[in-house]
Deep mutational scan, measured.
Amino acid sequence: MEVRTIKVFTTVDNINLHTQVVDMSMTYGQQFGPTYLDGADVTKIKPHNSHEGKTFYVLPNDDTLRVEAFEYYHTTDPSFLGRYMSALNHTKKWKYPQVNGLTSIKWADNNCYLATALLTLQQIELKFNPPALQDAYYRARAGEAANFCALILAYCNKTVGELGDVRETMSYLFQHANLDSCKRVLNVVCKTCGQQQTTLKGVEAVMYMGTLSYEQFKKGVQIPCTCGKQATKYLVQQESPFVMMSAPPAQYELKHGTFTCASEYTGNYQCGHYKHITSKETLYCIDGALLTKSSEYKGPITDVFYKENSYTTTIK
């Protein structure tokens, strides 16, 4: 009895394709271990004539594949690729409408935090270190965002349907971005203890939790000093293409032309909904596939993004 075979390709990165001759009487799992086709788990399936010449994702289970996976995804987590594939199996079914010149995501599976993050990423200057993220990001900007969303979920250790947080998501993504040249110098002034300067680099240099107003941050924000008295913390120097200011959701007025974009969060910790506000020729609110415009805006804002380049204080 002759062994019926077909020729397929296996890959971990969709760049390096490895030619395989597979036995049609055995499952993919018996031949390769966990195997995925377009995100779908085909591990328990036997090869079919229609699979001839198709590319299958496999887990990096030998040295060659491990090197290829690390170079593309910059992670050695053995569960990463499987999590990416199972997320992709959902995100490829989502709709990605162009809204006001940006790629958004039609609401499904509690994905409003991903839509808000995706919209924000198209408006701030950011370059990702893992080629996987950078490639998928370019495709997302062009309207094909399924891979990018699935990668975000995998890097953030999230599953489809789980509630997510924009600030946490951005923080994970910033860790995989090139923020080497970003720098922030802060000064804390206390009447009792004097003053202390701190220099922050990388992710810490672009994120701040405690106030939404970048102007206020430049002037000074009140913080408790270690001595128990009130101290003032203010920005001395900022070198970065953008800054992200966050605070627990509270009524906040966004003035046209003073910011790049913002995240609105309605609801409580267990259950809520994100919308995205962007400042173009007027203010726009993007909620999944829905767009509304207004000249002014007041609502429960939790993150505001500002364009920056270089700032030095005039406070002496």
Rank of each mutant, 00 (worst) to 15 (best):
C225Y: 03
E239W: 01
F148M: 13
K219C: 09
V99Q: 00
F9K: 14
E215Y: 06
N61K: 13
C261Y: 05
A262R: 02
T199V: 11
H18W: 02
T226A: 15
K158P: 02
Q251R: 11
L179Q: 04
M207A: 07
M209V: 15
K44N: 12
E68T: 07
P249I: 00
V304G: 04
R184D: 00
A69Y: 14
A205L: 04
V58M: 11
D62M: 04
H276I: 05
K93H: 14
Q123E: 07
Y311L: 09
Y28D: 10
N178P: 04
I15M: 12
L121Q: 10
Y269K: 09
A145F: 03
T211C: 14
T116R: 00
P131D: 06
F9A: 15
L102C: 00
S79F: 14
K219P: 01
K219H: 06
T10I: 11
G267L: 08
Y138D: 15
A117I: 08
Y155N: 03
I152Q: 04
Q123V: 03
A140T: 12
S171G: 07
P97S: 07
K298N: 15
I152M: 12
F80S: 02
V185K: 08
R83V: 05
E204F: 03
K316D: 15
K316I: 15
V185M: 07
E204Y: 04
E68N: 11
S104E: 12
D165M: 06
G210Q: 05
H90D: 05
E215N: 08
P224N: 13
T120F: 06
L212Q: 02
I124S: 02
V22Y: 06
Y208T: 03
E52K: 13
E68P: 01
C193M: 07
P34Y: 11
V236K: 01
S50K: 13
K275C: 03
L283K: 03
V67Y: 15
V236G: 01
Y138C: 14
Q238G: 03
I152E: 02
N309P: 12
P47D: 05
L114P: 06
Q251Y: 14
A140W: 04
N14T: 15
A146R: 05
M85P: 14
Y36G: 04
T116H: 01
P300F: 15
S171D: 09
T302N: 07
G161K: 00
A140F: 09
N309G: 12
D77Q: 07
Y72F: 09
S240H: 03
A154F: 03
Q237F: 13
H276W: 08
Q270V: 11
K233W: 05
V185A: 03
M170P: 04
M209K: 04
F128C: 02
G220M: 01
P249H: 05
N309K: 08
D287Y: 00
R139E: 13
K191L: 08
T159D: 11
W94P: 03
I105P: 11
P241F: 00
N100T: 12
V8W: 03
Y311P: 11
L65N: 08
A87S: 08
L291M: 13
L212W: 03
M244S: 03
R83E: 04
Q30C: 07
T266P: 02
A145T: 06
L283A: 03
T19F: 11
T64E: 14
D41M: 07
N49C: 14
C227W: 02
V243R: 02
D23P: 12
K158C: 00
L291R: 02
D135Y: 07
S295M: 15
K233L: 15
I105H: 06
Y274F: 06
C285T: 10
T91I: 12
Y84M: 06
L121G: 02
Y234R: 09
V203E: 06
D180Y: 10
W107D: 06
H51A: 07
N100D: 10
R66C: 14
D41Q: 15
A69P: 03
T43E: 08
D62P: 06
A145R: 02
I286L: 04
T103N: 03
F174L: 10
V203W: 11
G299H: 00
W107F: 02
K218I: 04
P60T: 06
D135R: 08
Q20E: 13
E308D: 07
H276Q: 04
Y72K: 11
G164F: 01
F128Y: 08
W107S: 11
K275R: 15
A115F: 03
Q31N: 13
E308V: 08
G194D: 07
N89F: 12
C156A: 09
F259I: 03
C190T: 01
T75H: 07
